[in-house]
Design a binder for these strands. Structure first.
Lengths: 117, 117
DNA sequence: TGCGGTACTATAAGAAATGTAAGTAATGTC
DNA sequence: GACATTACTTACATTTCTTATAGTACCGCA
């Protein structure tokens, strides 16, 4: 996750597909390494940065930050900062974020079925 | 798409998540740049290599091959080679591949809703 | 003999995602 | 004044994904 190069063929291809296919659009939004798990956890309610970090034992702080920022930029999660010391930041799904529930459910269902083959 | 390094932290993380979360497992299987679109097209019936290539104007033959092979390895598509000259190869979803239909539908629905925000 | 068509393969290079390690601010407590 | 706490940020390294380009085998046909 760094700046993307808006002149690359890769970028253009992704954009074109995203544009034409809503399913690819969605996949691109929730397709990071950790985005889906984060959303899954947040389905159950708001969580602090540190709580998320503990729930995802192997994630680095950098990745967690990046993914959360991306989700925030896409209006999937809401970030609330409390002006305290030490700082407290809470993450929560937005309404459209919660709407991912059936999506995740289907992914889950299929995954379980496929795994058992 | 090349060999993955099975000693990398990245690999370990992906494997662990895939293992624990069926939704991540699914996302990893259909999450390539082109996999989802390929599946979408194949939902409508079997297609030849060349037909797929024409349907996905910007894909390189290499990527198409790689993605198809990956989908094949995961039993999502079936590959049928006809011993003719010039060669003819047909790709078709397997039953579990067709089962992706509701998944794709949900991804699509959410994508459309989210896009219109 | 040379060309066209199909479905590839090989190799290299470029881009993007992820990981590693270290450091920051602010403040209350010891 | 040193230290712990929390949620980051920064710089850099590594890994993975995608693209680019050039080939290959096969056979029928001209």
């Amino acid at each position: 996750m760094s700046k993307i190069k808006e002149t690359s063929t890769n970028f253009a291809n992704k954009a074109a597909l995203s544009d034409e296919c809503p399913e690819v659009y969605t996949a691109n939004l929730i397709g990071g390494q950790w985005a889906l798990v984060i959303c899954s956890w947040l389905m159950q309610g708001k969580l602090r940065f540190g709580e998320l970090r503990k729930l995802l034992p192997n994630i680095t702080e950098r990745m967690l930050t990046l993914q959360l920022r991306r989700l925030e930029a896409n209006h999937i999660v809401k970030r609330t900062v409390y002006a305290e010391v030490p700082p407290r930041v809470e993450y929560e799904l937005t309404p459209i974020g919660y709407d991912l529930k059936p999506v995740i459910k289907e992914l889950e269902k299929w995954g379980e079925k496929h795994k058992s083959l």
